[in-house]
Design a protein around this nucleic acid. Structure first.
Lengths: 332, 332
DNA sequence: GTGAAAGCGCTAACAG
DNA sequence: CTGTTAGCGCTTTCAC
């Protein structure tokens, strides 16, 4: 059935070694033999058995990417970039979804045997330090928030600074009651963005008020809408809102519109992530735009370095760039 | 180092066969031996080498999913569902992106060796009949449009009927100049939706006019906006538009707003795909909602049946349900 | 019930 | 430069 190296060798009248040499692009093969092997290769339609090759080489050719959910635009976009970056290095990417629950995250991390994948990029949401496998397992790179203090490679943007940038922008517009949507003590990212929000406020000489910070269990559009409604129902409602991600902001946009108010005139809104849809919402959304490609490439680069050698390097903490993308939702 | 079956056997004082039996849940093992093996297993933290096992068994435990781009919401959502469905059957999913180009699609299809994955779900965009591998390779299931006539399993919604439903809905609102956005001769999906558009028109007693059908190379938001602008610049502009996907429709929404017109009063708009964002656009988007979960599960089910036995079954053509989701963009 | 041994397809010494 | 050979870690006859 499937044609093996041996079959090709027999047909070409050479040894498997020679065929292997040709297949693997080894330079020193007698032209005559090379020709015959190549003919046999073409005639049989030989395809290497990747599994066997990897078994022998001690690597699998796979990388795992663990994310909460691919249907969330940020992760869909990120995953696409990761796959592209990985492919350039010859890896195929296996995707695992966790729904952001700690139990699924633990399970996934544990199931990533040393034989299934060569390394993994993980974007944890709820994981705690104790959940991480003992070092010495496969190379792991954390994406996004460094929720917990573990000595593991990590790449992300400076969330605190980014959040602060967003809030400063709002303040520079003359807004004085700047709210936030997305508080969630269980998520590391939330704490960081909250910290940035607070320092943005104080940098602008504005005082922090608890009632202006709306919680959000899930950072989805519907939650953003609900949160915005409750903020607008306040005795003195906000004149600007910093949403911890774009989905919340999209929801907020809708809530404002439903109440007959205008963005940005009545309420200015800033999001976070720069999902593709944010450039097309009505109004389009000012947002923090992380350089997702840089993020993906840095992560792949890191895992690549870990796999090929540099085992002993101390855990890296890489920051990738971001920018404030100013659009209609904060433009007079 | 990594602990192997043999290590466990040595430690437990039995043969590899016995350990293998225990690991694989073989029933007839002397209790005493089972206990000792289990202890050794726990003590060493043994993890089976999936690659080696698969090499032996002749399967890999992987499924490939080929899509144009994960950053496109429809594919992000679909991929998420496919991964979930595959996981229930014990498969991990490998994602390959093609950017919708024929060359990348061919390459991908070709690289899907019989050893890399047990089967593949492919969503081709530009592939032609000649590009398909000779039957007898790994099980392949096509998702989405049956662009070409090849005897390969296929699951999709009835695109023609769905498009017709969308157009009929627009006609039922009393609209008489119903345009379409998304013509692209190179894409099978486009032809089908165009056919549905035409039959929807004629069912409503409306005549077809070429000038009302806007081409779209890529079905992206910006293209939808541009197409809408040119339609609105027509001497007698449309009063309704059927967009071949939601992204085009989102772009169209923006173009209408920029010209100071209103949706649905001046132009009613219908999309296709029911991306999550469509429920939150302003106005929210009426759209054809394919049952994506049914699609994913039918596809996984099919590939599962192919892999486990039913090789000789003739190529299946499965239709999954869809619904017209009526929202603000067509609601007075 | 369990051990010994063969071998899945491939690569990497090691001769020659 | 090329053939032979020994495994990678696992499952699976086939004896015992």
């Amino acid at each position: 059935m499937t044609v093996t190296l041996k079959d090709v060798a027999t047909l070409a009248g050479v040894s498997v070694k020679t065929v292997s040499n040709v297949v693997n692009g080894y330079a020193f093969v007698k032209p005559e033999n090379r020709r015959r092997v190549e003919e046999a290769l073409a005639a049989t339609g030989y395809r290497p058995n990747v599994g066997a090759r990897n078994l022998r080489r001690g690597r699998t050719g796979f990388l795992a990417l663990m994310v909460p959910e691919l249907s969330i635009p940020y992760f869909g976009e990120l995953a696409g970039l990761v796959i592209t970056a990985a492919q350039k290095r010859g890896w195929s990417v296996l995707i695992e979804q966790t729904q952001g629950t700690r139990s699924r995250e633990r399970e996934t991390l544990f199931s990533l045997g040393p034989h299934l994948v060569d390394g993994a990029l993980v974007h944890p949401e709820a994981l705690e330090a104790a959940d991480f496998p003992s070092p010495g397992e496969i190379p792991l790179v954390m994406l996004g928030e460094h929720a917990v203090d573990v000595p593991i490679d990590h790449v992300a943007i400076d969330n605190v600074l980014a959040a602060q940038t967003a809030v400063s922008h709002l303040a520079s517009l003359g807004r004085t009651r700047i709210a936030a949507i997305g508080r969630n003590p269980a998520r590391g990212t939330s704490s960081q963005r909250l910290a940035g929000y607070r320092s943005g406020l104080s940098a602008a000489g504005l005082s922090y008020s608890d009632e202006l910070v709306a919680p959000a269990e899930k950072w989805h559009r519907s939650v953003g809408a609900a949160a915005m409604r409750s903020l607008l129902a306040l005795p003195s409602p906000p004149d600007a809102v910093f949403c911890f991600n774009d989905l919340l902001a999209i929801g907020a946009l809708r809530a404002v519109a439903e109440l007959g108010l205008r963005v940005p005139e009545d309420v200015a809104i800033v999001g976070f992530d720069n999902n593709e849809e944010s450039a097309f919402s009505l109004p389009s959304l000012t947002t923090i735009a992380p350089d997702k490609m840089a993020l993906a490439e840095a992560a792949i680069d890191l895992v690549h370095r870990r796999i090929t050698g540099e085992k002993t390097l101390p855990a890296q903490d890489i920051q990738t760039p971001f920018a404030l993308e100013i659009r209609e939702s904060t433009r007079g």
